[in-house]
């Protein structure tokens, strides 16, 4: 394998990272909205968001990407592969992050909300200053864990023609007929991306276990 092929893999890696970031940021923004709606105490909002979460957790990511890319094209909305995949990952990640963060918000003791209310803090301040900082800390291990899943999940974007790391590996492998070598390198690249995050996640978990003692 020459340096050109390796550079091609690195280009694929770049797209994998970008796709993960888009999924994480988009999923983070929408996920926060979903988590807040889930704990809003308004039955309609809670039912809609819980349905949304059930739908995206209950179906394969691959299918979700298919539907966004090909399904929307069928109804006349032809999206660029990049945009379709970004939408797909945002929807997917927002359902998972929304559920993780809902649990974390509910894990903050009720007395915190009561104290904030008794101090006449309004909803925005209660969430921003009191509840969310504590909830985010609680959610960190699970959030990092999901980010690792998301990075590996981006390989599914290959199916709609998006050239990220896995598809780049596929292309190179078809050119130089050394699948073991190529996918070995692809695997190492994924590992180098995910492993530090996993380590960081378990480090956070240990630290929280100590703090909770």
């Amino acid at each position: 394998m020459g340096s050109n092929e390796f550079l091609f893999l690195l280009t694929g890696l770049k797209w994998t990272v970008l796709l993960s970031l888009v999924g994480f940021v988009g999923g983070g923004v929408f996920g926060l909205a979903i988590a807040l709606m889930r704990v809003s105490g308004r039955p309609l909002m809670e039912r809609i968001t819980s349905g949304y979460i059930a739908l995206f957790q209950g179906t394969p990511l691959l299918m979700q990407l298919f539907v966004v890319y090909y399904g929307l094209a069928l109804v006349g909305l032809k999206l660029d592969a990049w945009i379709a995949v970004a939408i797909g990952f945002t929807l997917h990640a927002s359902a998972y992050l929304g559920e993780i963060w809902r649990g974390s918000i509910e894990a903050v003791p009720k007395g915190q909300t009561e104290a904030a209310k008794a101090l006449s803090l309004n909803y925005v301040s209660r969430m921003r200053d009191v509840i969310l900082p504590q909830a985010i800390r609680i959610s960190l291990p699970a959030t990092v864990g999901f980010l690792v899943q998301l990075i590996k999940g981006t390989s599914l974007a290959a199916i709609v023609g998006f050239t990220e790391l896995t598809r780049a590996g596929n292309i190179v492998s078809n050119q130089i007929f050394q699948p073991l070598l190529v996918f070995g390198i692809v695997g190492v690249l994924y590992f180098l991306l995910c492993w530090p995050l996993s380590l960081y996640g378990s480090h956070l978990e240990r630290r929280m276990a100590i703090a909770a003692r």
Binding site: G111, A115, L119, S120, Q134
Partner: peptide, 27 residues
């Protein structure tokens, strides 16, 4: 109306001073 609770309910992620400053600044 100020309230004091059985379990204190201080905000654990803020210093003592920040606990006391938050509400006057925000509300």
């Amino acid at each position: 109306v100020g309230m004091v609770f059985q379990h204190f309910n201080l905000f654990p992620h803020m210093s003592v001073l920040e606990n006391c400053m938050l509400a006057p600044m925000r509300s």
